[in-house]
Nucleic acid binder design. Structure first.
Lengths: 228, 228, 228, 228
DNA sequence: CATGAATGAGCCTTCATTCAT
DNA sequence: AATGAATGAAGGCTCATTCAT
């Protein structure tokens, strides 16, 4: 009796696995026929496990989220320095979402899943909050925006992982590095002047001035002393 | 005579405009019916202007690319410092591609458009080459990868512009700033004082080695004693 | 005033002419667009002359029938021997229907045209009646059937004329010859037996016996003496 | 398992049967909707059996051709006298093509079917060759033309069979008789008695010259004193 | 009057889904 | 429980027809 249930769960997981792969490879346009065929079952059988297409997608969503949740829990983000936390969560996210990207994770989740996602996003947001609070992050842009930029970067990188333009390893490392440190080479030797340590926004020396139009007009407090 | 042609072109442009919006908002899955409806014309009329769906998508491509080309030409990227060049090309790209993102610009363009796109990408790549050659860009990752990361960031940001989570201005400024300067606050020259190891890790100066688990070489969580 | 009407009629005739050609060449599936294009006018103009597709087809039908009627009248079928009459009506029909064959003349005429057609068929039927009455035609099959066979042959031949497999001349001559004389070479020298002149059915000597299964079983009075 | 396949084949054959009827009756313009409706299945079901319209038509071709091939083989055309051979092949062709006439057999077959058709036409042509070689056929027209006339006659007759104007039996018998013997009553050897010029003109014996305006050479109304 | 533009209806095809075995 | 078969709905496209210039 229980055996069957167990077996059934395994089959279900298998189908889900195949579906994730197919979807990631060929996009959201794959049909139920495609998925069933890839999974080696009849279409009708597929419908036994997932009453309809949305259910399948939703299940994939759940799988992706639980996968990510597990990885993030394992990462113990709050027990390590902010840089390490970012590195870990980047890796975890890329690894977990790579297979599910067709779902548009972080992007166009089904209405019902929004709640789960927000709940899941918590640990990620926490890292940002901590980074902001600890002064580790620049203060010339709202932490919320910083997070958005981070997710933006992740999405793009994930899509490149899927298209085999980057490996998970590369993608994780590069994305972390870019996000944390920035692209501009640091100035050779900054004159040991003021205690600008706190308002590190303009850090890369010429940055706040050398990057004209980057934070144009009234963009939030670029390196202003009021932040702190 | 000419009037009609002009009018026709305007109508065509109008339809294209609507199509871009609808596609950007609802994804590539929108049907010709949807587009025609959104444009307020009958489906058959839509087909008068674009003989088939692909023709419509291709026209959108052309529009996006020519728009972007014009903006990049206007930007005179090679006549300004690298930072300004990045700022300008970021703004230009976001402004131009925002409406066409559903097409997956830089991603899955139709065969024929690939050529145009590559040709168009030239000025962008040129900026990266210049940045690398002039030593303005960090040297711990290949310029090619840097470009990929930049495009990744852009894509994500563009999608947020479309979903009205960011304005074009904000998106441009923030993306530029993040890409150029980085997210971590980095003191100009951290006096070898305190246990700043944790926070100052991502110092842009020695970034390539200071960011744990980030740099290509010794990729996963390197240098972080807490990882384990 | 009248000028215009005259001109209009000419244009109309021209269109009809082109339409006939196009229809004959490419079949009934040609669109109004095709016809308008071939005629060098706009589709809307075509509709000025013929309110709808059926009207055009019907007009073509009328043209074909009146053409045929004229030719048959000119042929004075009842003033010449039966053989000559057949020859003439064959030629007239092939010449007249060649251009209109797509209409399925004698085959799938529009309901309303049936009447006209039947009226037109009169002179043709008359020839058969005369041939039967005069004893010129074989008596082992009903004259009605003979007529059907004749029309069958004509249809096929006409289709070949249209496809340029036969010229009008060839087609007329061959069809007439075959229909009148038959395909089997006549026996060298028939024993000068009886006065079988009247019941000429078995004419080609061995025909009624040599053509086994041709008029099989109870097929109408094959050379039987009861016919007369 | 096998049951299903068998059943499926039967259903397929049934659909094909219905399709043949509908096509024969209403012409090639019938839509898939029409066919599905006539067959009593949903359009989508129709597509289960035939992936597209062309596939259906092609299947009909195959059916018609294989049917005809079988019949012709059974007829053993080369083992019987020419007259019997013609009688058999006429019957076989009419019986086999009657249901498929809308396909325009011998007329506008799809490219791939041309080959099959030509291969199939071989036995028919062989009969004509034999007839010509043996001197059984008249010599005043090329055997190729004779064949064309024969097919012309067949086509027309077949169309009448479809429209229920003739039964297969009647059509076969009459067509054979007409083709073989001719329509004109021809006295075995007209004693040079009376003014039989008019009636006996088409005498099969000297037919080639006797039929006015019929024979290729001196085509139009030749030898008829009344023509002018 | 001639014409370009607009449109409703219909066709071919595919897909997600249900049903009976 | 698994599956082949059946189907309604929708998508892309064309065509005959109407309208306003």
């Amino acid at each position: 009796m229980t055996r069957n249930i167990i077996l059934r769960d395994h089959v279900r997981a298998g189908i889900l696995d195949v579906a994730a792969t197919v979807l990631a490879e060929r996009g959201t346009s794959v049909s139920m026929t495609d998925i069933a065929q890839a999974a080696g079952v009849a279409r009708a059988t597929l419908y036994r496990y997932f009453p309809n297409r949305d259910a399948l997608l939703y299940a994939l969503y759940e799988a992706a989220l639980s996968d990510l949740t597990r990885r993030l829990n394992d990462a113990r983000l709050d027990s390590v320095p902010i840089e390490e936390a970012v590195a870990r969560m980047t890796r975890a996210t890329i690894a977990a979402t790579g297979r599910y990207r067709a779902l548009g994770l972080f992007e166009k989740a089904p209405r019902e899943a929004r709640r789960m996602e927000r709940q899941l996003a918590a640990p990620l947001r926490a890292v940002f909050e901590r980074g902001a609070a600890s002064g580790a992050f620049r203060r010339d842009m709202p932490v919320h925006t910083l997070a958005e930029l981070y997710f933006s970067l992740l999405e793009g990188v994930v899509s490149r992982v899927i298209r085999h333009r980057l490996s998970v390893e590369e993608a994780s490392a590069y994305a972390t590095t870019l996000f944390l440190s920035g692209a501009l080479a640091a100035p050779p030797a900054p004159p040991p002047t003021a205690t600008s340590t706190a308002t590190s926004a303009g850090s890369t020396t010429a940055s706040s001035t050398a990057v004209p139009g980057a934070v144009p007009g009234a963009v939030p407090s670029a390196g202003s002393p009021s932040s702190g």
